[in-house]
Simulated scan of single mutants.
Amino acid sequence: MQPFVYNALPARVIFGTGTQAQVAQELQRLGCSRAIVLTTPGQVGKGKGVEKLLGDLCVGLYTRATMHTPVDITDDAVNAVQELNADCVMAVGGGSTIGLGKAIALRTDLPQIVIPTTYAGSEATPIIGQTENGIKTTQKTLKVLPEVIIYDVALTLTLPPKVSVTSAVNAIAHAVEALYSQDANPIADLLAQEGIRSIARSLPAIVTGEGGGEALLKARSDVLYGAWACAMCVGGLGMALHHKLCHTLGGTFNLPHAETHTVLLPHTIAYNAPYAPEAIAKVASSLGVINAAQGIYDLAKQLGAPYSLKELGLKEEDLGRAADIAAMSPYPNPAPLERDKLLKLLRDAWSGTRPP
């Protein structure tokens, strides 16, 4: 066994079906009594459901969480937190809402309870991305790691199949980057492979609905568990080229987060494969395929996910600028980040070409 360093993240995880009913108990366990509930405009209904469960323990509902965590929205949310004298932040939703909760915690150091409704995985990481003046930047600090995560499988049952696919592939991206991280270790490797396997074997059933209610509940449960495992492994490590490109395309060109991950992942795997053969072989094995890049591409495409940046609205003339930004302040990565090769990667992703 090679020497390694493993940092366990200090978070409480509650997983099951119907677990959101425990929100008041968990809030009081933290010694809090004045929670502000966060949602996006589209998740107001779920936020009001949590507000009802909290009763007098909730002091307000903030519904302006936005993709890529723009700083001006955080400014407004922090003002609301201060006006309400909230002592806890409760995020109900996907990556946009969870990102806002983290941004508030970064500024105020308030404890967080997160109730994820997608497979984004941000809830399990000490990483925050924020966008200001068209540039998305990230930082890693335990200040933004939520204290409590409540996974309620029931809240994912209404997630549309297409959104489920892109959100789940986003989760797989966390595991892939963990496997070839410069800080990779055997514990994270196990989590990464378990997460990829759990998602890949169960995701098709979410789209097809095969087997009916009980089978769908099991598939949703397995994908949510897999997403948590994937997030846990990257949360203790770092990010590489894939996340750098996604942050560039999201922060500067406002492309949708999960869909961008889904389109790019096959191409970033192919880019790194010659420089991280053992890691990529583990990805392929976990997917049950021979070629990892093609396996991810085929899985997502067959399940109805977008497979080109062109579909997502990126203009071809913006590819050069995206390559330039991605090459600046690069994250550590197995393969050297060469501007011409990055541009080719982006061109292939823009056109939706199946990777070699």
Rank of each mutant, 00 (worst) to 15 (best):
H68E: 07
S122I: 06
P146A: 03
M90F: 13
P330K: 11
N291G: 02
V283I: 11
Q130F: 12
R220V: 07
G129Y: 08
H247Q: 13
G195P: 04
A200L: 02
Y180R: 03
V234K: 07
V263H: 04
A171W: 11
T108Y: 09
P41G: 06
T353I: 15
L54E: 04
G129E: 09
V59M: 06
L27W: 05
L30T: 04
L255P: 12
Y275V: 01
P186D: 02
E147T: 12
L217I: 15
D324L: 15
N133K: 15
C58G: 08
G295S: 04
T262V: 04
F4S: 07
L299C: 11
T262S: 15
I206C: 12
L53P: 06
D340L: 11
I14R: 14
L27Q: 12
A305D: 14
T260S: 10
T63Y: 00
L224K: 04
G42P: 05
G16F: 05
L337K: 14
C32I: 00
L145R: 03
T74S: 12
A229N: 11
L319W: 08
R29D: 07
D298M: 02
K48A: 08
D152P: 01
A11Y: 04
E311Y: 01
K315P: 02
I36D: 03
Y225R: 14
T118F: 07
A200P: 03
G235T: 09
G47L: 05
A326C: 12
E194I: 00
H257K: 11
T118W: 06
G18S: 10
G101H: 09
R12K: 15
P356A: 07
V263C: 04
V50H: 10
P277L: 07
A281N: 13
N170E: 03
V153R: 12
K341S: 10
S33Q: 14
G49D: 13
V234P: 00
A178S: 15
G211D: 08
V207K: 14
G99H: 07
L241Q: 02
A300W: 02
G226Y: 09
D298E: 14
T158C: 01
P306L: 07
A273H: 12
Q25D: 14
F15W: 11
V283R: 11
G93F: 03
H68T: 02
N272S: 14
F4E: 03
H267V: 01
K344I: 10
T353N: 10
T17M: 06
V263L: 03
T117A: 01
G16K: 08
A200F: 03
K102V: 11
D189T: 12
H243N: 09
I269Q: 10
L30H: 09
Q302I: 00
A35W: 06
N254F: 05
M328V: 12
G42A: 12
L249W: 09
P41K: 05
A276M: 01
L343V: 07
A276F: 03
T268I: 10
I206H: 01
K344Y: 05
C233Q: 07
V13F: 13
I187K: 03
